[in-house]
Design a protein around this nucleic acid. Structure first.
Lengths: 162, 162
DNA sequence: TTGCATGCAAACGGTTTGCAAAACC
DNA sequence: GGTTTTGCAAACCGTTTGCATGCAA
Protein backbone atom coordinates (compact mmCIF):
# COMPACT_ATOMS: atom_id res chain seq x y z
CA UNK A 1 0.00 0.00 0.00
CA UNK A 2 1.09 3.49 -0.88
CA UNK A 3 -0.88 5.32 1.75
CA UNK A 4 0.01 8.93 2.41
CA UNK A 5 -0.04 10.02 6.04
CA UNK A 6 -3.55 11.15 6.89
CA UNK A 7 -4.27 14.82 6.60
CA UNK A 8 -1.68 15.42 3.93
CA UNK A 9 -3.66 14.54 0.84
CA UNK A 10 -2.70 16.21 -2.38
CA UNK A 11 -5.37 17.21 -4.80
CA UNK A 12 -5.62 18.65 -8.25
CA UNK A 13 -7.78 21.67 -8.79
CA UNK A 14 -9.90 22.06 -11.84
CA UNK A 15 -9.46 25.80 -11.52
CA UNK A 16 -8.04 28.19 -8.94
CA UNK A 17 -10.45 29.96 -6.61
CA UNK A 18 -10.83 33.69 -6.77
CA UNK A 19 -9.12 35.01 -3.63
CA UNK A 20 -11.50 36.80 -1.30
CA UNK A 21 -10.38 40.13 0.10
CA UNK A 22 -9.84 40.69 3.80
CA UNK A 23 -12.98 42.80 3.78
CA UNK A 24 -15.14 40.08 2.36
CA UNK A 25 -13.71 37.69 4.93
CA UNK A 26 -14.77 40.15 7.61
CA UNK A 27 -18.17 40.38 6.01
CA UNK A 28 -18.60 36.67 6.43
CA UNK A 29 -18.20 37.15 10.16
CA UNK A 30 -20.31 40.28 10.44
CA UNK A 31 -23.18 38.75 8.47
CA UNK A 32 -23.45 36.02 11.06
CA UNK A 33 -23.04 38.18 14.13
CA UNK A 34 -19.70 36.59 14.92
CA UNK A 35 -16.97 38.68 16.45
CA UNK A 36 -13.99 39.54 14.31
CA UNK A 37 -10.83 38.20 15.89
CA UNK A 38 -7.28 37.72 14.62
CA UNK A 39 -7.70 33.99 14.99
CA UNK A 40 -10.83 33.80 12.89
CA UNK A 41 -9.42 36.01 10.16
CA UNK A 42 -6.31 33.85 10.07
CA UNK A 43 -8.36 30.67 9.75
CA UNK A 44 -10.50 32.17 7.00
CA UNK A 45 -7.39 33.32 5.18
CA UNK A 46 -5.99 29.81 5.27
CA UNK A 47 -9.26 28.32 4.04
CA UNK A 48 -9.16 30.86 1.23
CA UNK A 49 -5.61 30.09 0.13
CA UNK A 50 -4.32 27.52 -2.33
CA UNK A 51 -2.91 25.56 -3.81
CA UNK A 52 -5.01 23.01 -2.00
CA UNK A 53 -8.48 24.02 -0.95
CA UNK A 54 -9.56 20.91 0.91
CA UNK A 55 -7.97 21.15 4.30
CA UNK A 56 -8.15 19.10 7.45
CA UNK A 57 -8.29 20.77 10.84
CA UNK A 58 -4.65 19.77 11.21
CA UNK A 59 -3.73 21.41 7.89
CA UNK A 60 -5.43 24.60 8.97
CA UNK A 61 -3.81 24.58 12.38
CA UNK A 62 -0.37 24.00 10.90
CA UNK A 63 -0.69 26.95 8.55
CA UNK A 64 -2.26 29.24 11.09
CA UNK A 65 0.41 28.47 13.68
CA UNK A 66 3.04 30.01 11.43
CA UNK A 67 1.39 33.34 12.17
CA UNK A 68 -0.06 32.65 15.62
CA UNK A 69 1.70 29.76 17.38
CA UNK A 70 -0.69 29.82 20.35
CA UNK A 71 -3.76 29.01 18.35
CA UNK A 72 -5.07 25.55 19.21
CA UNK A 73 -7.39 22.85 17.92
CA UNK A 74 -10.29 23.99 20.07
CA UNK A 75 -10.43 27.34 18.32
CA UNK A 76 -10.15 25.78 14.88
CA UNK A 77 -12.87 23.22 15.48
CA UNK A 78 -15.19 25.64 17.22
CA UNK A 79 -14.91 28.13 14.40
CA UNK A 80 -15.26 25.49 11.67
CA UNK A 81 -18.47 24.40 13.34
CA UNK A 82 -19.86 27.92 13.17
CA UNK A 83 -18.80 28.30 9.55
CA UNK A 84 -20.67 25.11 8.70
CA UNK A 85 -23.69 26.27 10.64
CA UNK A 86 -23.78 29.48 8.64
CA UNK A 87 -23.08 27.57 5.43
CA UNK A 88 -19.83 29.32 4.56
CA UNK A 89 -17.89 26.09 4.31
CA UNK A 90 -18.60 22.46 3.51
CA UNK A 91 -17.36 19.51 5.42
CA UNK A 92 -16.17 16.53 3.43
CA UNK A 93 -16.19 13.39 5.54
CA UNK A 94 -13.50 11.12 4.18
CA UNK A 95 -13.94 7.35 4.30
CA UNK A 96 -10.92 7.23 6.60
CA UNK A 97 -9.08 9.80 8.68
CA UNK A 98 -9.95 13.42 9.31
CA UNK A 99 -12.63 15.41 7.59
CA UNK A 100 -11.74 18.11 5.08
CA UNK A 101 -13.21 21.57 4.97
CA UNK A 102 -13.49 24.04 2.13
CA UNK A 103 -15.03 27.45 1.53
CA UNK A 104 -18.23 27.09 -0.45
CA UNK A 105 -18.00 28.38 -3.97
CA UNK A 106 -21.01 29.47 -5.96
CA UNK A 107 -20.75 26.51 -8.24
CA UNK A 108 -21.24 23.03 -6.85
CA UNK A 109 -18.43 20.66 -7.55
CA UNK A 110 -17.83 17.09 -6.58
CA UNK A 111 -14.93 14.86 -5.68
CA UNK A 112 -13.19 11.80 -6.96
CA UNK A 113 -11.00 10.36 -4.23
CA UNK A 114 -8.53 7.51 -4.53
CA UNK A 115 -9.07 5.02 -1.72
CA UNK A 116 -5.39 4.16 -1.80
CA UNK A 117 -3.43 7.41 -1.95
CA UNK A 118 -6.25 9.79 -0.88
CA UNK A 119 -5.68 12.08 -3.84
CA UNK A 120 -8.76 14.19 -4.53
CA UNK A 121 -9.74 15.40 -7.98
CA UNK A 122 -12.65 17.75 -8.44
CA UNK A 123 -15.24 17.69 -11.13
CA UNK A 124 -18.29 19.67 -12.04
CA UNK A 125 -21.42 18.43 -13.67
CA UNK A 126 -24.48 20.55 -14.34
CA UNK A 127 -26.62 17.52 -15.09
CA UNK A 128 -25.96 15.98 -11.70
CA UNK A 129 -26.35 19.33 -9.99
CA UNK A 130 -29.76 20.04 -11.43
CA UNK A 131 -30.93 16.48 -10.97
CA UNK A 132 -30.08 16.57 -7.29
CA UNK A 133 -31.79 19.92 -6.88
CA UNK A 134 -34.92 18.57 -8.53
CA UNK A 135 -35.00 15.51 -6.31
CA UNK A 136 -34.79 17.57 -3.16
CA UNK A 137 -37.37 20.04 -4.37
CA UNK A 138 -39.84 17.26 -5.11
CA UNK A 139 -39.62 16.08 -1.54
CA UNK A 140 -40.05 19.59 -0.16
CA UNK A 141 -36.77 19.31 1.70
CA UNK A 142 -34.43 22.20 2.26
CA UNK A 143 -31.10 21.52 0.62
CA UNK A 144 -28.09 21.93 2.89
CA UNK A 145 -25.30 20.23 1.01
CA UNK A 146 -24.80 18.07 -2.06
CA UNK A 147 -22.04 15.55 -1.68
CA UNK A 148 -21.03 13.44 -4.57
CA UNK A 149 -17.98 11.37 -3.90
CA UNK A 150 -16.64 8.80 -6.26
CA UNK A 151 -14.17 6.45 -4.66
CA UNK A 152 -11.74 4.92 -7.09
CA UNK A 153 -8.34 3.44 -7.46
CA UNK A 154 -6.51 6.06 -9.48
CA UNK A 155 -4.39 5.25 -12.52
CA UNK A 156 -1.12 5.55 -10.63
CA UNK A 157 -2.22 3.31 -7.76
CA UNK A 158 -3.71 0.76 -10.17
CA UNK A 159 -0.36 0.50 -11.92
CA UNK A 160 1.56 0.08 -8.68
CA UNK A 161 -0.56 -2.81 -7.49
CA UNK A 162 -0.53 -4.67 -10.79
CA UNK B 1 -32.67 20.63 18.08
CA UNK B 2 -34.47 17.35 17.72
CA UNK B 3 -31.39 15.16 17.50
CA UNK B 4 -31.93 11.45 17.83
CA UNK B 5 -29.33 9.58 19.83
CA UNK B 6 -26.53 8.60 17.50
CA UNK B 7 -26.72 5.18 15.94
CA UNK B 8 -30.47 5.03 16.11
CA UNK B 9 -31.42 6.72 12.86
CA UNK B 10 -34.64 5.76 11.21
CA UNK B 11 -34.87 5.58 7.48
CA UNK B 12 -37.47 4.96 4.87
CA UNK B 13 -36.81 2.36 2.26
CA UNK B 14 -37.76 2.83 -1.34
CA UNK B 15 -38.23 -0.90 -1.55
CA UNK B 16 -37.49 -3.90 0.63
CA UNK B 17 -34.40 -5.95 -0.12
CA UNK B 18 -34.72 -9.50 -1.27
CA UNK B 19 -33.61 -11.59 1.70
CA UNK B 20 -30.52 -13.65 0.99
CA UNK B 21 -30.59 -17.28 2.02
CA UNK B 22 -28.23 -18.68 4.63
CA UNK B 23 -26.46 -20.48 1.80
CA UNK B 24 -25.79 -17.34 -0.17
CA UNK B 25 -24.51 -15.69 2.99
CA UNK B 26 -22.10 -18.60 3.36
CA UNK B 27 -21.12 -18.19 -0.26
CA UNK B 28 -20.08 -14.62 0.44
CA UNK B 29 -17.60 -15.96 2.96
CA UNK B 30 -16.39 -18.91 0.92
CA UNK B 31 -15.81 -16.77 -2.18
CA UNK B 32 -13.36 -14.66 -0.25
CA UNK B 33 -11.58 -17.47 1.53
CA UNK B 34 -12.98 -16.33 4.88
CA UNK B 35 -13.82 -18.91 7.50
CA UNK B 36 -17.48 -19.54 8.22
CA UNK B 37 -18.19 -18.84 11.87
CA UNK B 38 -21.37 -18.39 13.89
CA UNK B 39 -20.38 -14.81 14.56
CA UNK B 40 -19.93 -13.91 10.91
CA UNK B 41 -23.15 -15.56 9.85
CA UNK B 42 -24.97 -13.71 12.60
CA UNK B 43 -23.52 -10.38 11.49
CA UNK B 44 -24.38 -11.06 7.85
CA UNK B 45 -27.90 -12.03 8.83
CA UNK B 46 -28.32 -8.76 10.68
CA UNK B 47 -26.96 -6.77 7.72
CA UNK B 48 -29.43 -8.61 5.54
CA UNK B 49 -32.47 -7.93 7.70
CA UNK B 50 -34.85 -5.00 7.64
CA UNK B 51 -36.69 -2.89 8.21
CA UNK B 52 -33.66 -0.63 8.25
CA UNK B 53 -30.72 -1.58 6.09
CA UNK B 54 -28.26 1.13 7.05
CA UNK B 55 -26.76 0.03 10.31
CA UNK B 56 -24.05 1.35 12.55
CA UNK B 57 -21.59 -1.00 14.21
CA UNK B 58 -23.55 -0.40 17.38
CA UNK B 59 -26.84 -1.33 15.70
CA UNK B 60 -25.30 -4.53 14.45
CA UNK B 61 -23.78 -5.38 17.79
CA UNK B 62 -27.06 -4.78 19.60
CA UNK B 63 -28.96 -7.10 17.30
CA UNK B 64 -26.28 -9.75 17.23
CA UNK B 65 -25.98 -9.79 21.01
CA UNK B 66 -29.56 -10.99 21.31
CA UNK B 67 -28.31 -14.27 19.86
CA UNK B 68 -24.70 -14.24 21.03
CA UNK B 69 -24.17 -11.96 24.04
CA UNK B 70 -20.41 -12.48 24.05
CA UNK B 71 -19.82 -10.98 20.63
CA UNK B 72 -17.93 -7.70 20.86
CA UNK B 73 -17.09 -4.62 18.86
CA UNK B 74 -13.73 -5.94 17.76
CA UNK B 75 -15.34 -8.82 15.90
CA UNK B 76 -17.92 -6.59 14.30
CA UNK B 77 -15.42 -4.00 13.12
CA UNK B 78 -12.87 -6.54 11.94
CA UNK B 79 -15.47 -8.37 9.91
CA UNK B 80 -16.99 -5.19 8.49
CA UNK B 81 -13.53 -4.22 7.30
CA UNK B 82 -13.15 -7.50 5.43
CA UNK B 83 -16.61 -7.16 3.92
CA UNK B 84 -15.68 -3.73 2.62
CA UNK B 85 -12.38 -5.04 1.30
CA UNK B 86 -14.19 -7.72 -0.66
CA UNK B 87 -16.85 -5.21 -1.74
CA UNK B 88 -19.80 -6.98 -0.17
CA UNK B 89 -20.89 -3.96 1.80
CA UNK B 90 -20.62 -0.19 1.50
CA UNK B 91 -19.65 2.17 4.24
CA UNK B 92 -21.60 5.39 4.50
CA UNK B 93 -19.65 7.99 6.44
CA UNK B 94 -22.16 10.26 8.09
CA UNK B 95 -21.42 13.94 8.60
CA UNK B 96 -21.65 13.30 12.33
CA UNK B 97 -21.55 10.19 14.48
CA UNK B 98 -20.87 6.63 13.49
CA UNK B 99 -20.62 5.29 9.98
CA UNK B 100 -23.38 3.13 8.55
CA UNK B 101 -22.91 -0.09 6.67
CA UNK B 102 -25.16 -1.85 4.19
CA UNK B 103 -25.00 -4.91 1.97
CA UNK B 104 -24.37 -3.85 -1.62
CA UNK B 105 -27.31 -4.38 -3.89
CA UNK B 106 -26.99 -4.76 -7.61
CA UNK B 107 -28.53 -1.41 -8.24
CA UNK B 108 -26.77 1.73 -7.08
CA UNK B 109 -28.83 3.95 -4.88
CA UNK B 110 -28.09 7.14 -3.08
CA UNK B 111 -29.05 8.84 0.15
CA UNK B 112 -30.80 11.92 1.36
CA UNK B 113 -29.95 12.52 5.01
CA UNK B 114 -31.43 15.10 7.33
CA UNK B 115 -28.67 16.95 9.15
CA UNK B 116 -30.95 17.47 12.09
CA UNK B 117 -32.69 14.16 12.81
CA UNK B 118 -30.35 11.89 10.79
CA UNK B 119 -33.23 10.25 8.97
CA UNK B 120 -32.04 8.67 5.72
CA UNK B 121 -34.17 8.33 2.60
CA UNK B 122 -32.89 6.43 -0.39
CA UNK B 123 -33.26 7.32 -4.01
CA UNK B 124 -32.22 5.87 -7.32
CA UNK B 125 -31.32 7.74 -10.43
CA UNK B 126 -30.11 6.13 -13.61
CA UNK B 127 -28.98 9.44 -15.04
CA UNK B 128 -26.66 10.13 -12.16
CA UNK B 129 -25.45 6.56 -12.12
CA UNK B 130 -24.44 6.52 -15.75
CA UNK B 131 -22.98 10.01 -15.60
CA UNK B 132 -20.73 9.03 -12.74
CA UNK B 133 -19.65 5.88 -14.51
CA UNK B 134 -18.78 7.86 -17.59
CA UNK B 135 -16.73 10.38 -15.64
CA UNK B 136 -14.67 7.67 -14.00
CA UNK B 137 -14.19 5.82 -17.26
CA UNK B 138 -12.90 8.95 -18.98
CA UNK B 139 -10.19 9.32 -16.37
CA UNK B 140 -9.21 5.66 -16.63
CA UNK B 141 -9.85 5.19 -12.92
CA UNK B 142 -11.18 2.02 -11.42
CA UNK B 143 -14.51 2.65 -9.72
CA UNK B 144 -14.73 1.44 -6.14
CA UNK B 145 -17.78 3.18 -4.80
CA UNK B 146 -20.24 5.88 -5.81
CA UNK B 147 -21.46 7.99 -2.96
CA UNK B 148 -24.12 10.55 -3.50
CA UNK B 149 -25.34 12.12 -0.34
CA UNK B 150 -27.73 14.99 -0.21
CA UNK B 151 -27.83 16.69 3.15
CA UNK B 152 -31.06 18.46 3.85
CA UNK B 153 -33.34 19.67 6.54
CA UNK B 154 -36.33 17.39 6.16
CA UNK B 155 -39.90 18.66 6.11
CA UNK B 156 -40.58 17.65 9.71
CA UNK B 157 -37.46 19.30 11.07
CA UNK B 158 -38.05 22.45 9.01
CA UNK B 159 -41.48 22.77 10.58
CA UNK B 160 -40.16 22.32 14.09
CA UNK B 161 -37.58 25.05 13.81
CA UNK B 162 -39.89 27.61 12.20
C1' DT C 1 -2.93 -29.38 13.93
C1' DT C 2 -2.23 -25.12 12.02
C1' DG C 3 -3.53 -20.78 11.14
C1' DC C 4 -7.33 -17.77 11.06
C1' DA C 5 -11.00 -15.73 14.19
C1' DT C 6 -12.59 -14.25 18.66
C1' DG C 7 -13.02 -11.66 23.13
C1' DC C 8 -11.28 -8.66 26.22
C1' DA C 9 -9.19 -4.52 27.52
C1' DA C 10 -6.29 -1.08 26.55
C1' DA C 11 -4.73 2.23 23.05
C1' DC C 12 -5.64 5.41 19.40
C1' DG C 13 -6.95 9.54 16.80
C1' DG C 14 -10.05 12.94 15.67
C1' DT C 15 -13.12 15.99 17.87
C1' DT C 16 -15.51 18.26 21.79
C1' DT C 17 -15.94 20.40 26.25
C1' DG C 18 -15.21 22.86 30.94
C1' DC C 19 -13.09 26.49 32.77
C1' DA C 20 -10.52 30.62 33.71
C1' DA C 21 -8.27 34.35 31.32
C1' DA C 22 -8.30 37.52 27.37
C1' DA C 23 -10.40 40.04 23.59
C1' DC C 24 -14.11 42.27 21.30
C1' DC C 25 -17.86 45.73 20.90
C1' DG D 1 -18.93 46.08 31.25
C1' DG D 2 -21.09 42.45 29.60
C1' DT D 3 -20.60 38.88 26.39
C1' DT D 4 -17.90 36.14 23.19
C1' DT D 5 -13.95 33.97 22.24
C1' DT D 6 -9.65 31.82 23.33
C1' DG D 7 -6.19 28.41 25.14
C1' DC D 8 -5.25 24.65 27.73
C1' DA D 9 -6.02 20.16 29.25
C1' DA D 10 -8.97 16.66 30.04
C1' DA D 11 -12.84 14.10 28.37
C1' DC D 12 -15.21 11.85 24.71
C1' DC D 13 -16.49 8.48 21.36
C1' DG D 14 -15.99 5.68 17.42
C1' DT D 15 -12.68 2.57 15.94
C1' DT D 16 -8.39 -0.24 16.06
C1' DT D 17 -4.95 -3.23 18.06
C1' DG D 18 -2.22 -6.68 21.08
C1' DC D 19 -2.52 -10.77 23.05
C1' DA D 20 -4.02 -15.11 24.84
C1' DT D 21 -7.62 -18.39 23.84
C1' DG D 22 -10.92 -20.79 20.77
C1' DC D 23 -12.42 -22.81 16.61
C1' DA D 24 -12.85 -24.06 11.54
C1' DA D 25 -10.69 -26.47 8.05
Amino acid sequence: MNQLPLGSQKDILIEPRKALTEDSLKDILRKSGLKITKQRLAILKVLNSGPRYHKTAQDILDEVKKINPNLGFATVYRFLKKLIQFQFISKISMEAGSACYELKSNESHYHIACINCSKIVEFKNKLIESTLQKIVLEKKYKLQNQIVEIYVTCDQCSQLSS
